[in-house]
Design a protein around this nucleic acid. Structure first.
Lengths: 250, 250
DNA sequence: CGCGCCATGTGGTCTGACCACATCGAGGTC
DNA sequence: GACCTCGATGTGGTCAGACCACATGGCGCG
């Protein structure tokens, strides 16, 4: 009997699907500099002719690239038409994380801890690097949240959106694109679950809202003061206490 | 003249593509618990009949879900055949990050800083949570790397692979799936660039290799001792000095 | 000169067919 | 009866060709 293990040198023929070849070739072209962000790649019909595959294969490749945020497809004619190379890692990362959070592939506790790790870093970076414009971008949602104080009670959705904007602005202010994009992806992925928690709060909402805004203000001022360590600690405390209040009494 | 801005309530008809509907429905089914990891979803022909779309649309949806690591497709018959729900966020995250790093959508410095942030966290978590099995998984590549000492010089690729395994093992040992997956994705995305840097090193390689192994040993022992703070600092120092040596004299 | 309309080219969708593959079971062989 | 062979079956993978909706830009008419 032939020992299969003796045939380690014999690996099964790699069966690469046609659309994967297309994906690879497009990536190669981008790598080689032949395609830059903003460029339109050949039409699907022309690509299928050049690569000697069916248009269906080309289209499946486009769906893969689109899911990864590498290209964007637009119909019609004009500048927005055609399939265009466009770097949208943030959106792709967000979609990816959102679906896996929704599918519960990541324990919620792990997501929160990861968020703390990233936002601590973001806050510290923001304290060190934030420009005036970036500080304004952080201050705007902060002021809007504070303006909700004393207003109607049913502003949970608005507050959640503003909170998302606030945290994203801090991440952007840090100046690290990857850290920012991962931070954004996590916060966006949590947008729905957090809103659901807010809805469950009932009458406690005004008190919680007040507390959250105070914490936001503290984070903002630490960043404005350039105190990275304090900003990091305050962000961590903010996220922890928020989740404790939202999920603790579930 | 009609002021277009007055028509904010009039949003353009949302033109949702057919395959996006398919993606949404599959995700809904998973969300609702009708589809769990490991389940096979209906065949492409049956899905297209049920959803009243063409099989091509179904297939494009599958490519999107596949790119996100939500499903896996297998031909033939039997248990591995058909399209199966399978949570593979790590692989999807790795693919996503690799392509965007390759496309230079993330500055290299940002990637390194993000890696440091995540691996600091991973190392500290590992020091606190690592099981005996996890420690063995870390020790194995460490020993293998040390065994390369004094051997042939052209082991750069092997060393790079073992280094990847080492860092991934630490991330896994921390016990936080999301942090681990992000750490893995970054290290994997850097595998090729780092190898390229190693190749550029020339005669300095043996000295660099020795230094890297010493640092690895230090990280390992800090984790084994349960000293999270030290492990985090050592990992950071390791990554910084490694990149300084690899890219500093470029 | 201005305006409307249609030719053009894009991605989006559909149909129906065939292929390669992996399994399973019916039937034959020993 | 045990074993083997080989085709039926059903899966995803691929292909060809057609039509649709859409956005533009140029042509021709008023």
């Amino acid at each position: 009997m032939i020992d299969a293990r003796a045939g380690d040198a014999w690996r099964p023929v790699e069966r690469v699907r046609a659309y994967q070849h297309v994906v690879d070739q497009v990536e190669e072209q981008i790598l080689a500099g032949a395609l830059k962000v903003g460029d339109r790649l050949p039409g699907e019909r022309e690509l299928s002719a050049r690569l000697q595959v069916s248009r269906a294969a080309v289209r499946e490749a486009m769906r893969t690239l689109e899911a990864q945020g590498v290209v964007r497809a637009g119909v019609g004619s004009g500048p927005d038409a055609g399939t265009v190379v466009s770097a949208m890692p943030s959106e792709a990362l967000t979609r990816l994380l959102r679906v896996h959070v929704a599918l519960a592939n990541f324990p919620v506790g792990d997501v929160i801890e990861a968020r703390i790790t990233l936002e601590r870093s973001s806050a510290a970076l923001a304290a060190a690097n934030a420009t005036r414009a970036a500080m304004s971008a952080i201050a705007a949602p902060l002021a809007a949240m504070e303006a909700l104080e004393g207003g109607v009670d049913e502003d949970r959705r608005s507050y959640n959106d503003l909170d998302t904007t606030f945290h994203i602005a801090i991440a952007e202010a840090g100046g690290n694109r990857l850290v920012a994009d991962m931070t954004i992806a996590i916060r966006e992925a949590m947008r729905q679950p957090i809103l659901a928690s807010l809805e469950r709060l009932g009458d406690d909402w005004p008190a919680v809202r007040r507390r959250l805004s105070e914490e936001h203000r503290g984070v903002y001022e630490a960043i404005a003061a350039g105190d990275g360590a304090a900003a990091a600690d305050l962000v961590e405390a903010h996220i922890r206490s928020a989740h404790a209040r939202l999920d603790g009494d579930r």
